[in-house]
């Protein structure tokens, strides 16, 4: 039987905890929420404890935090319209750069795999790509207006400079930089969800993407290149096709989804207070895969689960956070 064992439960923030982010070393994670505070947690003998509190960085809710791949920088996106970049060059964490440009709420921030680019998105319907230009210097590379509604989430491909965004307009968009004129363009639109797409996650190869929505479904998408074996027609350089829909499992909005790059397991965070774990079947067809629900943690939190993240060090630890003000650390066990 597969199960999620609770390792620790923390009263982490006052009010909603919106997001958590693992440091690349897996020994620290950051959290943020309605209380406008960023907490940095580290593993002590007695369990996870708050090591640093970053206050006064933002005037309104902090919606998302993201560690850079090198682990030296932390980015925070806020409803106050700004994105702050924190580092501890001075010995303690300080905000040394603020990215301004969005008209209102910034809802998501993500570092590219090289750490050279940063993406943000927000209610102004735009996605911004920023380049790290030097010490504490960030230059806007592109403003992408492909969506026609609120953009909820931005996520980078695990190894390439390919960006994906999820929106209130029910679609997911994929962007790449054109090698000839170095312009960023939307190269694909993924349409199939019936309402808001809240989050998305690439598998470890980056060839597949899992999305989650307020339509209570998870969808798995695959990228097809020209002249693929299946004969899927491809416009431009590649096409993304929905190859699997997981419906009938969730009873309310699915706010977040995380595809573990080590185990291949998919975890979901839902407004029905449940964390679910899906596993691809062993004989799964690559072009029409089968995923089984192998674990369902009822009452994982006492209110909506907003975010789930797998520890990057392959120890099967999962961290989750909720409207109830709590963060929980879980261990996935498959016995």
């Amino acid at each position: 039987m597969a199960k999620l064992e609770l390792l620790q439960s923390i009263n982490a923030h006052k009010g909603i905890v919106w997001n958590v982010s693992w440091h690349p070393n897996g020994n620290i994670f950051a959290s943020c929420g309605e209380d406008k505070v960023i907490n940095l947690w580290s593993k002590e003998n007695q369990g996870w404890a708050v090591k640093t509190m970053l206050v006064d960085g933002h005037q309104r809710t902090i919606r998302e935090v993201a560690w850079s791949p090198c682990g030296n920088f932390l980015a925070s996106a806020s409803f106050d319209g700004t994105t702050a970049i924190w580092d501890k060059k001075s010995g303690q964490f300080e905000c040394n750069a603020t990215l301004e440009g969005h008209e209102n709420e910034v809802k998501s921030v993500a570092w590219s795999p090289s750490g050279q680019l940063l993406a943000t998105c927000g209610r102004d319907k735009s996605v911004w790509v920023w380049e790290v230009a030097g010490d504490d210097e960030y230059v806007c590379e592109a403003v992408l207006n492909a969506h026609n509604q609120d953009v909820k989430k931005v996520v980078w491909h695990p190894s390439l400079e390919v960006l994906a965004s999820a929106s209130y307009d029910n679609t997911v968009k994929i962007y790449k930089e054109d090698q000839l004129d170095s312009d960023w363009n939307c190269v694909a639109t993924l349409e199939s969800h019936e309402t808001t797409v809240w989050s998305l996650t690439f598998d470890k190869t980056g060839e597949r993407l899992a999305t989650c929505s307020a339509d209570n479904t998870v969808k798995i998408w695959k990228e097809y290149k020209p002249n693929n074996e299946l004969g899927v027609s491809v416009s431009k350089e590649s096409s993304w096709k929905c190859i699997c829909t997981l419906s009938g499992y969730h009873t309310r909005t699915i706010y977040d989804i995380a595809w573990c790059h080590h185990s291949g397991l998919i975890a979901t965070a839902s407004g029905d207070d449940i964390i679910r774990i899906f596993k691809e079947a062993e004989d799964s067809d690559q072009d029409a895969p089968t995923f089984d629900l192998i674990c369902k943690k009822y009452d994982a939190h006492s209110q909506d689960v907003n975010c789930v993240k797998w520890n990057p060090t392959a120890n099967n630890e999962l961290v989750s956070c909720s409207d109830d003000g709590q963060i929980k650390i879980w261990k996935f066990l498959d016995e």
Binding site: I16, E34, R60, T61, R63, F79, N104, E105, K107, R123, D150, K152, Y168, T195, T196, A214, T253, G271, D304, D323
Partner: peptide, 15 residues
């Protein structure tokens, strides 16, 4: 209905 069901937009509105 879509707007009223979006708790993130509600949270932002209430700030």
């Amino acid at each position: 209905n879509k707007q009223l069901a979006d708790k993130e937009r509600i949270a932002a509105a209430l700030e």
